[in-house]
Design a protein around this nucleic acid. Sequence first.
DNA 1: CGAATAGTGTCTTTAAGACACTATGTT
DNA 2: AACATAGTGTCTTAAAGACACTATTCG
Lengths: 250, 250
Amino acid sequence: MAGRQGPGGGAGDRPGAKRAGLDFPRPLTTVDIVIFTIRLEALHVLLVRRGHGEGEPFPDAFALPGGFVDVARDADLAACARRKLAEKTGVVSPYLEQLGSWGSATRDPRGWSATHAYFALIPASAADAALAADAQWFPLQDDNVKPKLAFDHAEILQAAVQRLRNKVEYTSLPAYLMPEEFTLPELQRTYEVVLDRLLEKSAFRTRMLSADLIEPIAKMRKGPNRPAQLYRLKKKAAPVYFARTFNAPE
Amino acid sequence: MAGRQGPGGGAGDRPGAKRAGLDFPRPLTTVDIVIFTIRLEALHVLLVRRGHGEGEPFPDAFALPGGFVDVARDADLAACARRKLAEKTGVVSPYLEQLGSWGSATRDPRGWSATHAYFALIPASAADAALAADAQWFPLQDDNVKPKLAFDHAEILQAAVQRLRNKVEYTSLPAYLMPEEFTLPELQRTYEVVLDRLLEKSAFRTRMLSADLIEPIAKMRKGPNRPAQLYRLKKKAAPVYFARTFNAPE
DNA sequence: CGAATAGTGTCTTTAAGACACTATGTT
DNA sequence: AACATAGTGTCTTAAAGACACTATTCG
């Protein structure tokens, strides 16, 4: 049987009707990004207001930043995601991870469409530096966001939040939400904001310091009380995976 | 600015040149599945030999089962994956999980293409029952397989193996590789085959039995020695996530 | 009985949880 | 000095690792 033929030429049906051609309808292909940051002690996500030109679905609704893959400009999916991220935030090298893909006949009224969803973590310091005019940060409340989202973006957002919360239990991902220099209590606070749960100081410090992740710098954070040691991410800052989760959620 | 326009209508370029139309080139959209099973104490993956009609890329090479999304038949991506899985193996309700997507200008010589990859676990008992004529099981050796694979399928396969190995450290996924009835030593053996590492019997048993995953049945596995208690997956057999990995790989 | 595998128990180890305690700055 | 937060130490706890020991079947 022929291998990768078009629809209708698949296994079992119309044997012998080999068509190597590509003259069958193709789904729309988009990339969407869930961009997280921490502002005002709360997890925020970036949304974009949609236009209202003719034929635009979900006019004026909020949506995740994203759009069609441009086969002329985008070498691959990750490049497309990075391009869209940079267009909206100016950030060029954030933590970027593929989240999954969503595709169906009905999610876009214009026809069968599939989106490749990514999620990105950017530090608060970069979150407002070069924000696009149509983009806006929204705080997350109970895994959701106030405005009703276009397409199936509420579902995608929910998956992103779940993935983030889940990974924060056993990885160093929150480090990518921090500014260049930060203290351990500040990092712990970020963990706590994402997890919406307090963590044990001593266990947290032991875990972070024994991971090959951060290094102290010759500077302290001054405040009204005892100053705190400042740290920065090590150069080779690959995310660290710990062997256990934090609290075994009983 | 307009929201989800076609390529060229994105942020920043050609302002005012709004085009709500969809008259721009679309990538090819495919779904591929990495199907795992255990045979002869080794992890195997299902491959399909490609055809050699005109215009067929990678003629006669082996590839992951998959193919184009059929916008007329497939309601969504998961349905497309299930269809292709059933076509090749006859299995209708396996463990099926989205793996990720791979898309670029160069992975398919016919043009910009994106594939949505899934991975499935099926029991050995189902692995040969209704195998398609062009499909064949190959053992995994060092995260790879003997034949050179078409497209970027070697990369996808590698990602699938990594994901499986990783998840086996802290989940009950191998249970989906077992036949309906199995003993604890058999389940442990499956874990060991996937991880390519021996596990401690007592820790393994404690973990499995304290999870709400399997239940004993009123039957024993008879053999040349002491018989072993047979178990089956509980009805609500959602995968279990453990709070720790097995051996902390030092 | 001995061989072989199933299954249990006991002690150690690791890393987290609880929480007290010390350290160091500001006002 | 009072206070607030940074940072450490000590004891407990949960679950895994090591490994010996018992249990049950067959030949």
